[in-house]
């Protein structure tokens, strides 16, 4: 399979004015340089679903912004669908879709269907293929009831489903998703993950998904790139990451007396089921949560092993 995204030594540095220099700042500002993305290289094959994960400030969004032609890099090269993003912004726009979890591309006061109609016009879609495409996506993402509502009245989960539909109307070959589940509750997250996966699978869309939630990558993607402080520290399959770093589960139980007991289980040594059975036998459990290790811990672990 051919690479649809090729990234070589991509670097982004931001030059920022040093603060707290008082009046001096006004006449002769001093600058400091921050390296957000530091010589990263990777390739993504057509139809691959890749998670780009890391803690806040790791450089995930900056990379996505460079690959989707919003930002120019300081150095390095990238080819997205055979095009250099920052030199072919308009041409590239027709082949990629972007969803930024913290931003909306829908018109705030317009009914969702009007926003979709406008997106169709923006991407120069013909009337009949557009309607056919919209009808398919509306069914897939189960948003028929939302079409007449203005964006401002939607819940975050509903809005996110509509955002994804809007970004898929022109049938992009690559979909960039920047924190698509941020701020969503557990149920809404699950719905979004399933829909993204289903759509990508059906249309062979290449996915590059950033998140700091390890569940997003486990449930949607097949490959994971971990980035920290602008550098790639892990690039392998999800199963490799799971075997090496996601074999710990955090189990927290609440007993009848309200006491919270937290335990860490290494699933390689003891299956989660066995650990849960032991806890249930030992305590009168009224509530239970099972979590993956937080992102920071995975990164720490990767560094420790290096």
């Amino acid at each position: 399979m051919n690479n649809i995204i090729e990234v070589k030594h991509l670097t982004k540095k931001f030059k920022l004015i040093k603060k707290n220099n008082g009046l001096k700042n006004f006449f002769a500002p001093e600058y400091k340089t921050i390296t957000a993305v530091d010589k990263i290289s990777f390739n993504i094959k057509k139809g691959e679903r890749v998670a780009f994960i890391g803690p806040n400030g790791a450089g995930k969004s900056t990379t996505i912004k460079m690959l989707s032609s919003i930002l120019y890099p300081s150095s390095g090269n990238a080819l997205v669908n055979g095009l250099v993003p920052w030199d072919n912004r308009k041409k590239l726009a027709y082949t990629i879709g972007t969803v930024f979890g913290q931003r909306s591309q829908l018109w705030y006061n317009l009914p969702v269907q009007d926003s979709f109609a406008l997106m169709g016009k923006i991407y120069d879609l013909d009337e009949i293929p557009f309607k056919r495409r919209l009808s398919k996506l509306v069914k897939l993402f189960e948003i028929r009831d939302l079409l007449e509502h203005p964006t401002r009245s939607l819940s975050l989960g509903q809005r996110m489903r509509c955002e994804i539909v809007a970004s898929l109307l022109h049938k992009p070959q690559i979909l960039f998703l920047d924190e698509p589940t941020i701020g969503l509750d557990v149920t809404a997250k699950e719905v979004i993950r399933n829909l993204i996966k289903k759509q990508a699978f059906e249309e062979e869309t290449t996915l590059l998904l950033t998140s700091h939630d390890t569940d997003d990558m486990e449930k949607v993607c097949e490959r994971v790139i971990v980035i920290n402080k602008g550098k790639i520290i892990f690039d392998d399959s999800i199963s490799a990451l799971r075997d090496s770093y996601l074999n710990k589960k955090y189990i927290e139980v609440t007993t009848e007396g309200g006491e919270k007991i937290r335990t860490v289980v290494n699933t390689k040594e003891k299956p989660a089921k066995q650990a849960i059975d032991e806890l249930v036998q030992k305590y009168h459990v009224t509530d239970m949560t099972i979590e993956n290790p937080p992102m920071e811990e995975i990164i720490k672990e990767i560094y420790n092993r290096e």
Binding site: K65, S68, S69, I70, R89, K90, L92, A93, Y94, I96, T98, F100, R103, Q105, I122, Y123, D124
Partner: peptide, 8 residues
């Protein structure tokens, strides 16, 4: 910034 990568 989020609109400049759209064909408009």
């Amino acid at each position: 910034a989020y609109y400049i990568n759209k064909p408009i």
